[in-house]
Design a protein around this nucleic acid. Structure first.
Lengths: 148, 148
DNA sequence: GGCTGATTGCAACATTGTTGCATCTAGCTT
DNA sequence: AAGCTAGATGCAACAATGTTGCAATCAGCC
């Protein structure tokens, strides 16, 4: 996975630097979207230091290469898990634990395209964030209700 | 329209104050999403002053009552045009002129629900932002291409 | 090992959002 | 119509987030 991202960087002529590898690694290991400052404090705990400006620039780069996405409802970044779906970012966000999962579905895109086209709009990028409960949190809540 | 919003406020026991009426009016007249500070400078031009804290609080209230929505990809607020669609906010954003239009479609919601349910996720809120070109900007671009 | 352009760090700043508390006012009561 | 009071606003101070220009550094080339 990390290797794949590194290959993308190389292919586009970007240098493989320590800061870039570190940010990649952090995103890789994260279960939730991380803001630039989240990433900074995460690294600080491991005794590493990156200037926040650097992190912003690295994330900008990653997003432009589709190696990461910004989750708007949270303001954090996640590693892109679906290199395929260009111009279409769909996430499920658990509002309990913050867990996030990316998904893609052509039919949804087509549905949105069709609907907006009827209104004279020419859609280029899709963004959708479905928030609710992930499987784990739903089960927990369900069991609590049974008890209560 | 403005009257409708005022009635919602009254019905919930909130006071009808000058600042709240002013923010409502600004949102009403806007073609694009406005950030809290946008609203402040807009009012300043008309010789009126509101503290930015006040604007933040008013917008929070409006959002909680579904009188306004925050458009995440832009960070601005729009007046809610579809009082109906609770838990479902869909926008088309023109990345040329910034124009915005809200829409709703049950089928899209159902599609998203079905898809995420298959992944064990229980969706409660839908958010989608389709960005592209509005009818006007598309036409302009098309004509420019013909000339160039 | 040295060169060079890309990358990072730094400092300073701009913007955006938050909190606690004093003051004021909308809408009720009398 | 005047007074009362909870709710709303303003203010000040601060916290968090994001940006810019420039000097120092380093990855990947020779």
């Amino acid at each position: 996975m990390l290797q794949a991202a590194i290959r993308v960087l190389q292919a586009q002529g970007y240098k493989i630097t320590e800061p870039r590898k570190q940010v990649l690694e952090v995103l890789e290991g994260a279960q939730k979207p991380l803001s630039p400052y989240d990433i900074q404090s995460f690294l600080k705990q491991k005794g590493k230091y990156l200037n926040h400006v650097t992190i912003y620039r690295i994330l900008d780069l990653f997003c432009s290469l589709n190696l990461a996405h910004k989750v708007l409802s949270i303001g954090g970044f996640v590693k892109c898990s679906l290199g395929t779906a260009e111009g279409c970012h769909r996430f499920m966000v658990c509002h309990q634990c913050g867990a996030i999962q990316e998904f893609a579905d052509k039919e949804l895109c087509q549905g949105e395209d069709a609907f907006t086209r009827n209104l004279g709009f020419h859609t280029k990028y899709h963004l959708s964030e479905s928030s609710g409960l992930c499987a784990d949190c739903f089960r927990k809540q369900f069991e609590e209700q049974k008890l209560g």
